[in-house]
Structure formats: C-alpha cells, structure tokens
Simulated assay, not measured.
Amino acid sequence: MTPPAPQSPSIGNEVPSSLRELLASVANGTVGVDQAAGSVASMMRQTDDGKMGALGEVASIPGATVDLGRRDRCGFGEVIYGEGKSTDLMIRIVETQLGAEQSCLITRIDPTSAAQLRRHFRHTHHNPAARTLRIAGQPAQLVSPVLDDAIAHVAVVTAGSTDASVAEEAVETLTWMGIAHRRVEDIGVAGPQRLLAAVPALRKAAAIVVIAGMEGALPPTVAGHVGVPVIAVPTSTGYGANFAGLTPLMGMLTSCAANVAVVNIDAGFKGAYLAGLIATQLIAAEKDAKERSISQYEGV
C-alpha cells in the first residue's frame, strides 16, 4: 500500500499573491533561497503555542486587532491613529508591530501620550507640530532619505506659513515611508512670482502634495505648470467664508486641472501617503529596469 504523501502545513484557503510572486522569483533565479526564506519569515507570525501562523494573519491583542499582513499586501504597514486611543493600547500595538520588524507611525498623538511612549521605546522621533510619533527598531530607520533629483521624490508645497502643521504631518509620513522630499513653503497665489521661481524644482518631483487653505487656489495653479500628479490637501486655515476648510475643499474638487486629486481637510497624512505610493512605484520600476540592464550586460 502506498503511504499518503506528506501534507504541507495549512496556511489558509488562499495563497497570497505576494507569496506566489516570491516563489516565481525563486524559480526563475532572480531571488536567492536565503532571501526568500527571510521574506517568508517576515510574512508569518508566531502564535501563542509556538507554531507559525498563516501568511498575512492579524495579531489579536486586548483592545485591537493589528494587521501585520498589511505591509506585504499594500507595501507599508498599518498606521496608528492616536486620537482617542489610550497610551497603554498604543504601546501594545507598537510592541506587536516592532515584534514583526515593522516600523511604526502614529498620527494625531497628544504630547502627553507621546512623552510616555518615548520613555517606553528606545528609538523614537516626535514631531509636536505634526502631532506624529515615529518608532523603529533601529535608529537608522528614523532618518529621512537624502534628496536626490535623480531618484523619485515628492515635493511638499504650502500656500502659507499657517499651513505648516499639515505639511509637517505630510513630511513625517514620507519619512516613515522612506521617500525623500523637497519642501517649498509659502508660495500662495497672492504672490504668483514665488510659484514661478519654484516651478523648475517642482518639475523634478514624482508627485506633489499642495497644501492650501483660504480659497484653495494653489493646487490647480501648480498643476498647470507640471506634468505629474498633484495631491491637493485643503486646510481649515481662513476667515469665516472658508467654513473650516469646506471652501478650499470644494474649490479643489471643482478644479479644471486634470492632474489634481483631492484628499480630506487637514489630511496631510493621506496626501503624503498617496504621493509616496506614486514615488514608490517609480523607484521600483527604475530598480527593475536597472537590474534587467545589468543582467543583459552580464549575459553578453
């Protein structure tokens, strides 16, 4: 009687596409076995009984369910929205993410909670103006990438200095994503010559986050000078008819500039995240093209 074939450990009913792509890379020789083993380990988590859990699983902790598989599915890990969360809960979430070798970004965190988390974790960066806290396993992960015009980066533009706090949230988000940025500050439409002076630098960006309050005219004005996506972030800066950001929001949504997309009021994180995804795709494409060029040269 033929013995039954050995069964592979169950990893759920559906194999994630990231695992299929990794196995295909091993099969065609573009990824080594050791590198693939490390990637598989990062996709899996250890359960309470010491066994390895399913790929892309979540981690259930008191008060939260941490999506540890999000980085493999979406490119970046789960971001913690700090407003309304207790310090103890945020500590437990961060410990879970660091245990999975994922750096952490907390947005809308108050100074008291930020101070308590900084005492609890070793490698942190608090930006009070942005109301953000970044936490990492290694100090090098907290450093902003060096700006290089030859590498895809994001420009963060403000209409006025009163929009700075939203811009700070955008910058902290890009730094957490590992995307270099260029800041262009206080170039609102009241002084159009300031924008014209900045246009050459803006044209080098992969995407531009434009942050503006008042009537919200800056994003479409910038968009008319560049050939890249412009992510418009309306702010609550302005007098009564600004309606706490509703006026610039509606103005940006009704812009005739085709390369403008709009996020929510004061949403520096969301604007930067979208722009960062655009830059990430370009960086990956440039890397793949370079590797293919090297492979073709070596094969000659």
Rank of each mutant, 00 (worst) to 15 (best):
I278Y: 05
K51Q: 13
I211Q: 10
Q46S: 12
L19N: 01
A198D: 09
M252L: 07
E14V: 14
K270G: 13
A27L: 13
R119H: 12
A155V: 11
A36M: 02
A190C: 12
M214S: 07
I106P: 01
T237M: 14
P128D: 02
A267Q: 04
V222Y: 08
A272V: 10
Y273L: 12
T162A: 15
A257G: 14
S86T: 14
N127K: 10
A115L: 11
P248E: 08
M177W: 02
P128G: 09
I265N: 05
T221A: 07
L23W: 07
G82M: 00
A150I: 12
Q141C: 12
E21N: 12
A289P: 07
S165C: 13
A207M: 01
P139R: 03
V26Q: 03
Q46D: 08
G245K: 00
G251M: 14
G216Q: 01
A232W: 03
W176R: 03
P128T: 07
S113P: 08
L55T: 10
V260D: 04
A114R: 04
T235E: 01
S165T: 14
A267P: 11
M43G: 10
V184Y: 02
S103P: 14
D88E: 15
E291Y: 10
D266Q: 05
P200F: 02
P4D: 13
T280P: 02
R183C: 12
A100H: 09
D163I: 04
V209I: 02
A41Q: 14
Q138C: 11
D88V: 14
G137E: 04
S103T: 14
R131E: 14
P234A: 07
T65P: 05
A272C: 02
G75N: 03
Q116L: 14
P6C: 09
G63R: 00
K290A: 15
I187S: 02
I80T: 00
S60I: 14
L22D: 04
P229T: 09
P128N: 01
L105V: 07
P62N: 03
F76T: 09
E57V: 09
L249D: 00
S144G: 13
L274H: 12
K85L: 15
G29K: 05
H153W: 03
S39R: 15
E298I: 11
M252I: 08
